[in-house]
Design a protein around this nucleic acid. Sequence first.
DNA 1: TCAGTGAATATGTATGCACATAAAAAGTCA
DNA 2: TGACTTTTTATGTGCATACATATTCACTGA
Lengths: 234, 234
Amino acid sequence: MTAPASRLAWTDVRDELRARILTRVYKLGDKLPRDADLAAAFGCTRTTVHRAMTDLASAGLIERVRKGGTHVKADPVTRATLDIPITRLEVQAAGCAYSHRVIDRKACPSPPHVMARFALTAPRAMLRLVALHLADDRPYILEDRWIDLGTCPEVADLDFAQISANEWLVRHKPYARVELRFGAAAAQGDIALHLGAAKGAALLVMERITWDAENPITFVQSYAPQGYEIRAQS
Amino acid sequence: MTAPASRLAWTDVRDELRARILTRVYKLGDKLPRDADLAAAFGCTRTTVHRAMTDLASAGLIERVRKGGTHVKADPVTRATLDIPITRLEVQAAGCAYSHRVIDRKACPSPPHVMARFALTAPRAMLRLVALHLADDRPYILEDRWIDLGTCPEVADLDFAQISANEWLVRHKPYARVELRFGAAAAQGDIALHLGAAKGAALLVMERITWDAENPITFVQSYAPQGYEIRAQS
DNA sequence: TCAGTGAATATGTATGCACATAAAAAGTCA
DNA sequence: TGACTTTTTATGTGCATACATATTCACTGA
């Protein structure tokens, strides 16, 4: 316990700056003092202030531009981080027995709506896989997945009976970039059937598109019955 | 163009490490070399490697513990960042005319389901506000909001006719912590009525809970008709 | 054998310095 | 005036070094 009273950690600087923003010492759109001046005021080096600033910038609270200086963001956004685990682990974390079932599987060229998601100009050979994840033998999530056979040729030889495509891909084909979309849809046709939902029932739809650099990996539309919830935190 | 060929930026180190993880040079669960060794191998300082590592850790690709070393995460998660703008700006960004309407407004103690969201043990005085956001005069989002009057006493004097509670709060009551939840629900009762949706229609439900330190600020349940979409990226 | 203690070690943080880079501001010249 | 160039400036990055801190691991003693 050396009690470094005069020594502020970068987190302290960050917290103090954040507090000043929250309490409107620095108002929306305001320009903050230069790093160097703040460093002098805080009694630390510019490096330390810089780290605090970088963190606040990544949190979406401020905006920094070279020479332009640092400004409190004028139009605040709610920024949160989303962690989506492998479905099997999610089910098991809830204390349920996990299982899954492949419902349909066929290789075919990517149809227009899949090409659009990947921003492709020409169709590519893909594997379409419809699978159901179950928790305690009750339908949990239905996924309608397209896997690029050019990027993932191995999947042609896998039947995904033991391991789900969800888990296999996350474990064997890490992506460099992912895009997620959330929406709601009414259950209909096969989707309602497999999920055991009434026709027209509200479903949460999650789309996930992943790339390895510029190559498509997979595009999934996941359908979860009412009650399913996705969480995110700041 | 000084071409600092022998000088690797921390982003280059990060990208190289990420590539090694993606190409399974370092497998899932593997222990990575020590920062110092990597620094020597890359011909840079430990500081630079450390920054690369920090970034990969925040991206959820690796896990670092003091003395324990750095490991490739064994159970990969899909991590993405969500940016939710002020609803008015979202509507206007889509090229629509924005308007909003307060539907209901009354002060009352927080009911059990609101207390549960804030993890409160005793009820607090709150303002309940039901409002509709419109895009080109068509229902866009219906929000059912609870505002803590202890934390935000000013709202008692506001009628939110000019500025929506959504925008007022984001601009005047920045939060320290936020929690988001997404789900689907069937439209019913007043919600269906105000959104102009058929009874039973699928809605996207977004819950947002914000705190200022340990004090509740607001809890909102937002209902969006089918077609509304939320996006996140890595 | 096993619990407790202490040394070794890998990551975390801070400092001081130097230079890179982008953008604004000032200066220049037709 | 107005287009162009140069200088200034605030942030971005890298290096060398020292110390902090949390675990692990080996050692110790009952």
